[in-house]
Design a protein around this nucleic acid. Structure first.
Lengths: 147, 147
DNA sequence: CTAAGTGCAAAATGTTTGCATACTT
DNA sequence: AAGTATGCAAACATTTTGCACTTAG
């Protein structure tokens, strides 16, 4: 379903190179544009959006949605074999925004389960588990049900 | 965390009653407004957004974020135990856009696994599995790797 | 040379907000 | 009466699009 790039443009390279310098980091389209412009690169916002979508389609970047009212985040996963192999799953904390990489057989089993029992071919590269991380869960205990 | 309503207004009742008539259905704020207006109800878009947020805070509705570029969806769960229990998961087909409700123990087990083994408190209301549904997968066989 | 990509500015989208008015309790 | 909710329209933020121009292959 992803549209792929056919030409290697200056802007595309600049984007990829920038993402390579910030592995395991999630940035929004706006942030990327701002940083690159500040660096003196010549790139427009529309191009960033268009290339980002293509890179996601090519599996070079991964797109995260923290919540519907914040902009989407992107992360470089091009070289991360464990990610592209689909053995790596991502858990995103909705409170602090931290990203937990989970690399375990149970989740690989989940993928098979969905396929075998529900006919659904799940894509681990696109799927993100949202929830609350250990640390934030601990902090939130005790402040529930308060008016 | 959610702001609660203190008064019972006409608009609030209309909203709740409407949602009760469409259980297990996802609707966006815009759709709800359109339907109610068409029914001759007097309700403004801002009120719908405000009440929807309150109802989510009160646990009457659940808010789903299928993907960042589509509007948020709301579903009545006031009586739906399977949803509030977090046993209901969603699979979204990236080809045809269909949404599959999966209601199965393996996924409940997954939730527990993430908590027990990775300390991550996964939220099934926010998490959507992306991939390809059975029907689209069948259609795509044979047309892979085409330039 | 031709298809693909870019940039700008405008448009589209979904959601929130300010404020005067109306309604609930 | 006092506080809360509503409705409108304007404001917002993010993302998409139309179109002329540039660039890669």
């Amino acid at each position: 379903m992803g549209i792929r790039s056919k030409y290697n443009t200056k802007q595309r390279d600049v984007l990829i190179e920038y993402f390579k310098t910030i592995p395991e980091t999630h940035v929004t389209a706006g942030e990327v544009t701002r940083v690159l412009i500040e660096k003196g690169e010549s790139i427009g916002q529309a191009t960033v959006y268009r290339q980002l979508e293509r890179l996601v389609g090519e599996g070079v970047l991964k797109k995260y949605l923290i919540d519907g009212n914040s902009p989407a985040c992107f992360e470089y996963v091009g070289d991360a074999k464990h990610v592209t192999d689909g053995i790596c799953f991502h858990c995103k904390c909705e409170v602090c925004g931290s990203l937990l990489h989970v690399n375990c057989e149970t989740l690989t089993g989940l993928k098979e389960h969905l396929l075998d029992h529900h006919g659904f071919q799940m894509d681990p590269l696109r799927t993100v588990f949202y929830g609350i991380c250990e640390e934030c869960a601990r902090k939130q205990v005790g402040q529930e049900e308060n008016c």
